Simulated assay, not measured.
Amino acid sequence: MTHVVVVGAGYAGVMAANRLAAVGQSDVRVTVVNPRPEFVERIRLHEHAAGGASAVQERRGLLHRDVRLRVATVDEIAARSVRLDDGAALDFDYLLYAVGSTAAQGPPGAEYACSIADLAGADSLRGQLPRLSAGARVVVIGGGLTGIETAAEIAYRYPSLVVELVSQSVAGWLPESSRASIEGKLAKAGVRLRTGVRVTGIRPDGVVTDTGLLPSDCTVWAGSFGVPDLALRSGLPVAADGRLRTDDTLVCVDHGRIVGVGDAVAPPRHVGEHLRMSCQAAIPMGAHGADTVLALIRGERPEPLSLGLAGQAISLGRRDGFIQATHRDDSARGFVLSGRVAAVVKERVCRFTVASMRFSRAYRWLPGPTPTVPEPNSIAVR
């Protein structure tokens, strides 16, 4: 019996575990280790935080019936086993590293803000917002997808509150016409934009910026993402940002029995430079990682990762949205969708995301852009 341990049960981990169980041989046993029994639908955390649809789902019906779930936290990864926070150890033949991402370290005083990157922060915000009086100020820090969606959702659910979005720019990676459209939609939704502003600290009564103090009754941190330090603590090879380094098949560069998938993995640039932390990349990476493990079990050479992206979908409340079509390398194309149609498409994307993990065996994804010159990497099984 070959034992595969999957560390993490987010989008990448669930897809990988389900595909292993659905496609694998009868002599492959799969155990998922995750700190909580429920599945957190992170792409709905902004809805959850604003008092809308819950981002928490029961894993029953989501995980394959043959996958065993162990509710625990992995403290350390050794050569052929993992040590859990309860002192127990799990041996593995192969390990799928799918620990996902977390909120990056915020500015000084970040403890006074609700982080929207995890369920604890979203739960805290969900409890705070209904207690605010009319006219209270909610300041959202961050002009990325998370900040945009969170600010719009709060303004939609709580029109009596003053919602402000503070950032150097809003959707700064998109073409100018797309940025202008999104900014206009945020303003129409009632979100006040403060761009060109750098946040230097957070206080209980406001946000410290390079232009002065911005009063706030409730502050939301929606900055960049970081990754858990499990790989670093375990002595595995990591990139400068702490992500596990892999070859182009997603096998760890110096541990041939560990395969990395999702946000916490840094594959070579020629296959992964265009991939951003997102469920759009995590789910196909999870599927490919499962296929890589199965190839290793069979004694075959795994296929290199080839993963293309299709677009970026942004919800702006429940009745408006914006979708930027992209080339497979995630660069913007000229086609966009906007308004209610975009809101409907975004909702269907969210629903398909969950459905794709249930039907893991049939899941397929877009091939990636033409790769650049590969970087040298080596694998050593130990």
Rank of each mutant, 00 (worst) to 15 (best):
D210A: 03
D210E: 11
D210Y: 13
T211M: 09
T211R: 13
T211C: 06
T211W: 01
G212A: 14
G212Q: 13
L213F: 09
L213V: 15
L213M: 14
L213Q: 04
L213G: 00
L213P: 00
L214I: 14
L214P: 05
L214V: 15
P215S: 10
P215R: 12
S216K: 03
S216N: 09
D217V: 06
C218I: 12
C218Y: 06
C218K: 11
C218R: 08
C218A: 12
T219C: 11
T219H: 01
T219V: 13
T219Y: 09
T219P: 08
T219L: 06
V220P: 05
V220T: 06
V220A: 10
V220L: 13
W221E: 03
W221C: 09
W221Q: 09
A222I: 08
A222G: 03
A222T: 02
A222N: 07
A222H: 01
A222Y: 05
G223E: 01
G223I: 08
G223S: 13
G223N: 05
S224L: 14
S224R: 15
F225S: 14
F225H: 03
G226H: 10
G226S: 15
G226N: 12
G226L: 07
G226M: 10
V227G: 00
V227R: 09
P228D: 14
P228H: 14
P228Y: 11
P228A: 14
D229L: 01
D229V: 04
D229Y: 05
L230C: 03
L230G: 05
L230M: 12
A231P: 04
A231M: 09
A231Q: 04
A231W: 04
A231L: 08
L232T: 15
L232P: 00
L232Y: 06
R233N: 14
R233A: 15
R233F: 12
S234G: 02
S234F: 10
S234A: 10
S234C: 06
S234D: 07
S234E: 01
G235L: 12
G235A: 11
G235K: 08
G235Q: 02
G235M: 11
G235V: 14
G235I: 04
L236N: 04
L236S: 02
L236I: 05
P237R: 13
P237E: 12
P237V: 08
P237Y: 01
P237Q: 09
V238F: 04
V238H: 02
V238R: 00
V238G: 00
V238P: 04
A239H: 06
A239N: 06
A239C: 05
A239S: 15
A240Y: 00
A240H: 08
A240L: 14
A240N: 03
A240S: 12
D241R: 07
D241H: 09
D241L: 03
D241T: 13
G242V: 06
G242D: 08
G242Y: 01
G242W: 02
R243Q: 01
R243F: 00
R243Y: 00
R243W: 00
R243H: 08
L244Y: 05
L244M: 12
L244R: 04
R245I: 14
R245E: 13
R245T: 15
R245C: 12
R245W: 01
R245P: 00
R245L: 15
T246Q: 04
T246Y: 01
T246L: 07
D247E: 05
D247T: 09
